[in-house]
Design a protein around this nucleic acid. Structure first.
Ligand SMILES: [Mn+2]
Ligand SMILES: [Mn+2]
Ligand SMILES: [Zn+2]
Ligand SMILES: [Zn+2]
Lengths: 143, 143
DNA sequence: GCGCAACTTGCAAGTCTTTTGCAAATGCAA
DNA sequence: TTGCATTTGCAAAAGACTTGCAAGTTGCGC
């Protein structure tokens, strides 16, 4: 059941500490992480930033991780779960991020429209909500 | 009906060529544009890039423009339309972007869930679809 | 285990996007 | 028109990635 490492081997890519750790770190994180945040979670010796970027690109291309575009300075990554995906809520006041499994996410009507009107074949989507978290709602604070 | 310039004046912000042009350029663009793309559409003399960034930040904070996070190197911006918003489809092969008005977009069930389960008050969302455009579907080409 | 070829990594340099300080230019209300 | 706050250009800097290259690892067959 070493699933993901097998995928790497099967494709002729080496299984290295960097790759296994990235997968583990992301699988254990409740939130998508930035490349920087991922690197910070390594125990020493930490890999070079370039290696983290290269491995995220590789794992992305294999579908093992997925990048998330919130409206931030840096991109974030999350582990992909088989047959599932997540949506996110971002607090515009404090930046807090919550991710939640997208059960019964039905965007098929929209996807069908896209197919028939624009001719695009949609393979996936990303949906983010923005607003205020409970903490920031409480004390009426910084916009 | 010079609406947006009025909003600027009312808030004590100057109405400058840079600001008016950014609003006009975005209003006329069928796609969200990058800061660089916006600057390129100015007739000479073009404003400095720093000015474009500063003005986009200002107009965003006033709600006159909105940033769109596609999975690209640079952020994009679009003009906000009153009581309307758009969704986008991005081709993973050639990068083509199509934006379309989100008529009858009903994410209220999800937003209610977010409200009751997480306590977030959602003010807006962003929804992007990814897949292949008709052109790239035709000729089975570069992934 | 050993050895080699292929693949990976660290490091340093480079690119691209976005931010910031500051003085000169401009907008605007009086 | 004047006066002052706001805005802009310019140059420098910060950040987020990317790339070349030599040294270090991994996968595999022996
Ligand atoms: Mn979904
Ligand atoms: Mn919508
Ligand atoms: Zn908050
Ligand atoms: Zn395409």
């Amino acid at each position: 059941m070493a699933g993901q490492s097998d995928i790497l081997r099967r494709l002729g890519r080496a299984v290295t500490r960097g790759r296994e750790e990235i997968l583990r770190i992301l699988a254990e994180s409740p939130l998508p992480l930035t490349p920087r945040g991922i690197r910070d979670k390594f125990t020493d010796p930490k890999p070079d930033a370039a290696t983290v970027y290269r491995n995220l690109a590789l794992l992305s291309s294999l579908g093992l991780v997925r990048s998330v575009a919130l409206h931030e300075r840096s991109r974030r990554y999350e582990a992909t779960e088989v047959g599932a995906h997540r949506h996110r809520v971002v607090c515009r006041s404090c930046g807090r991020i919550e991710a939640f499994p997208a059960r019964e996410c039905d965007l098929s009507r929209i996807e069908n429209d896209i197919r028939s009107r624009l001719g695009f074949r949609v393979t996936d989507h990303s949906l983010e909500f923005f607003g205020k978290c409970p903490g920031c709602l409480g004390k009426g604070n910084r916009p």
